[in-house]
Design a protein around this nucleic acid. Structure first.
Lengths: 206, 206
DNA sequence: CTAGGTGATGACAGCCACTGTCATGGACCT
DNA sequence: AGGTCCATGACAGTGGCTGTCATCACCTAG
């Protein structure tokens, strides 16, 4: 056994999640988080840049998943439909960690500071998607715009999924949202809303 | 003359803008801002909820402008095109304060905290637009999605306008961005990119 | 003209997020 | 055995932000 208990980073994240759920983000001090994890405040800040960051996983696992899905989409696919495959991948991951995703989101939506941080994370995700699209030969401003639309669909669909607990399938919500948006923008819907058309299970063909 | 110099709020905003431009947001303390305005730190926080807020005008003047433009758009117009009129109005206002807008934006983009605050302001603007669309009879999730798309177009177009100083007309950039997005989404463009079609000057007909 | 209310500001103490710096002592290598 | 490494602790300090009370020009009632 090492000099210290292992996985201090994970223990800090766990302690923070518990305390935020118990008494809210603002009523929890970093010192308290550290104490519950058996560490000091100073050590918390060695693992996380600030108090909010403990709720936002690093490494870009989520981002990588989406980017990879877009990269490996058939080259013939229109940008917006390639991005749709990225959304499928995102939905799959979030639904896998269903309960955790919902608990985490409840904490975030309850606090303005955390919502700010979430938005900037999504903005950076948007940048990554735009880069990926440029890699597929999409030119600006189309790449940036399509990426922003992807985030918009994600936000709206995720919020809807989070609100109606135990409701519809997240991927379905995203698909129908995207279709509705296409209709709204004047294009004929690629498939009836509520059930995805041919690109539906393409993510499994990667 | 009153007991104190008039318009302390305005003096604080002015002092803050100067200091942020001189030495950056992070290297400026609230005490310094207050001192330059001839006030105390405590008084700063009586006028602004936090240090960042001094850069974000209150009262929702900007929001009202856009919402009003959308409300007074012809009822027959598709949601996305009603929103286009809102963007016209926004562009007009920002271009009127051209130099100021650019200076302010330079400060904001240089700092992560300020970018976060900007994003949450835009998110609240998106909510306001979605509400307005619902008032026009647009149902969800279409209303939320169209509002998000409006913000996306605004963000991309404004960034482009800000980068190429003295370049193209902001409204033109927004119009062509919106058209490009429509094309990207699969719809036929309502007008050639770069020059707006019939809805172009509708904002002046309000 | 006076008494009392009002409202913006100052003065001051205090909390907490976050940082710089140095010390500590197991783990690991040679 | 000796030396280096590195995650952590200890401690002091800065600055954003808040609660609280005092101050004092202005206004209004009588």
């Amino acid at each position: 056994m090492g000099r210290w208990e292992p996985d201090s980073r994970g223990r800090l994240a766990q302690a923070a999640l518990e305390l935020f759920a118990e008494r809210g983000f603002e009523n929890t001090t970093v010192a308290e988080i550290a104490e519950r994890a058996g560490l000091t405040e100073r050590t918390f800040f060695r693992h996380y840049a600030d108090k909010r960051e403990v709720l936002f996983p690093t490494g870009g696992e989520f981002e990588n998943l989406i980017v990879t899905a877009i990269e490996s989409a058939p080259a013939a696919l229109a940008p917006i439909d390639a991005v749709g495959l990225g959304l499928d991948a995102a939905a799959a991951m979030l639904e896998q960690r269903g309960e955790f995703s919902r608990r985490r989101q409840a904490i975030i939506t309850a606090n303005a500071e955390l919502r700010e941080r979430e938005l900037i994370k999504l903005a950076s995700l948007s940048d990554a998607i735009a880069d990926t699209l440029r890699g597929r030969g999409v030119t600006d401003p189309g790449a940036s715009l399509t990426a922003e639309v992807a985030i918009a669909v994600f936000r709206v669909a995720f919020a809807r999924w989070h609100d109606e607990a135990g409701g519809e399938d997240l991927r379905q919500i995203m698909r129908s949202s995207l279709d509705e948006l296409k209709a709204q923008m004047g294009a004929p819907s690629s498939a009836p809303a509520g059930q995805a058309g041919e690109p539906a299970n393409a993510v499994t063909q990667v």
